[in-house]
Design a protein around this nucleic acid. Structure first.
Lengths: 255, 255
DNA sequence: CCATCTTTGTGCACGCGTTCACAAAGACAT
DNA sequence: ATGTCTTTGTGAACGCGTGCACAAAGATGG
């Protein structure tokens, strides 16, 4: 998971635990797929499998929203889609600006998952004058100079930052000053924001590093298992209790 | 944060809590910045601020790696960079393949954060024959038909899926069959993988939905606060200790 | 060598999140 | 109507993660 919660010390907002909120979009996606297949009802077990979670967890999650299921039957798909959408605030239109139209910004602008969920790309903004006016995903790029006006004219409260790390904080400050109160940050930097502004971070590099950690661990365990497979080595291993799973060298400095 | 842990029931891998592992890349980034400024040592307080976390948490995190600090002084920056890099497995070279060279795949291929952290884009793979041979980020795109051969020839164990949702599971199956054991999934689907394979999910749409939830909540509170701004109501609020949905509200309103 | 001051490393308590397990509720058949 | 069967909703226990607060450790100055 590429999440990066910031601020908000895990306070449960309006009774719904943060962890549950993070899973609602997952359920919504699974439910939407069922809805398209015209499936009328679904059990917690089935839906949980489709969403990749535990069924007990799913039921408890739904219990925070209210009692929308029917015992012995399951949940009404259409009704649940509506309830979750409403809870997430997706029944209204959310204008969003994307700042930094590089490769990633362009990819985001073209991403279809936004429009289908109540998000509308209101504007694309970039500091490069050469890009100004050029259409990306059918939307003409506007210059950073007009950022404040764009935000205000469109009533934008959610901003996406896809600039290089160096520009992120400055862009963030301007967004916040202009009235944005939620930011999705793709730049590899810790953003400082005033109280009341939400920041979520997506960091591609961090995700890979976490994978690398587990990958390394797997490789180490494998090696250990192989070593242990050799009878003599197994005996030694059983004897000397030291030695970590991987060749984790404890001492020596790197110079 | 855009994370999506899959499988692995929060087992702490080799004594290091999963939550700590997820923060190590954060520390590493902050430390690298310090290193570039030739800062010799840093206190837990300073580093915590730079990484955007609590200092006690940071110290506890480091304590899982060993005692690398000096009391009264702080941590040796270079040494810590090395230790964390080693712990994360970044001292070795990780060949990575990216499957699905659309807007997002291209953005990932161009992303500089990989190379600098021990990750090497070994190959770009796409099912579109029109793309085959075309260079993206200086690397020629190869056709999906050769996927297995590419994985094996390059000894790839980490794969990135940036295909449309419909193709993701199939690509995933082929990657796993070819020997990949860690997958970073950008497609909006739940991937089914056998035991022993790690999947991390990054879902842009989900992140926005979570922001929308909080945004909606903020708007609702604001409205409620406005109503409460009436003197009589304010008096009642100060009196009854109940207080808004979460205790998050600092009493008095600005405007 | 001793005193003081800084900063680490950690024991402890608390709270959130997860999971189990089961009672309550409703559907459905007879 | 009554009984059975399915599936929800939740009470309770447990475990992980967080943060406080302090003792131990070392640096630094006299």
């Amino acid at each position: 998971m590429a999440t990066g919660r910031t601020h908000r010390p895990a306070t449960r907002s309006r009774g719904i635990p943060e962890a549950t909120v993070a899973r609602l979009p997952l359920y919504l996606r699974a439910l939407t797929a069922l809805s398209e297949r015209s499936v009328p009802t679904v059990s917690s077990e089935e839906l949980a499998a489709a969403a990749g979670v535990n069924s007990a967890k799913l039921r408890k999650d739904f219990s925070y929203l209210g009692s929308y299921g029917t015992r012995g039957v399951g949940y009404d798909v259409e009704y649940l889609v509506y309830q979750i959408s409403r809870e997430l605030g997706l029944t209204q239109d959310w204008p969003v600006v994307i700042v930094g139209i590089g490769n990633l910004g362009a990819a985001l602008a073209n991403y279809g998952g936004f429009a289908s969920r109540g998000f509308r790309v209101a504007a694309l903004i970039d500091a490069d004058p050469a890009l100004t006016g050029k259409p990306v995903a059918g939307i003409p790029v506007q210059h950073t100079d007009d950022l404040e006006k764009i935000i205000q004219d469109n009533g934008v409260s959610i901003g996406v930052i896809a600039t290089p790390a160096g520009a992120a904080q400055q862009v963030c400050d301007r967004l916040v000053a202009a009235g944005v109160t939620s930011i999705l940050n793709f730049a590899p930097t810790v953003l400082n924001v005033p109280e009341g502004v939400d920041v979520r971070k997506v960091d591609l590099s961090i995700e890979l590093q976490i994978l690398a950690f587990h990958e390394q661990r797997k490789a180490g365990e494998e090696a250990a298992a192989e070593a242990a497979a050799v009878p003599a080595a197994a005996a030694r291993a059983a004897d000397s209790a030291d030695q970590g799973p991987d060749g984790d060298v404890p001492a020596v400095m790197p110079a």
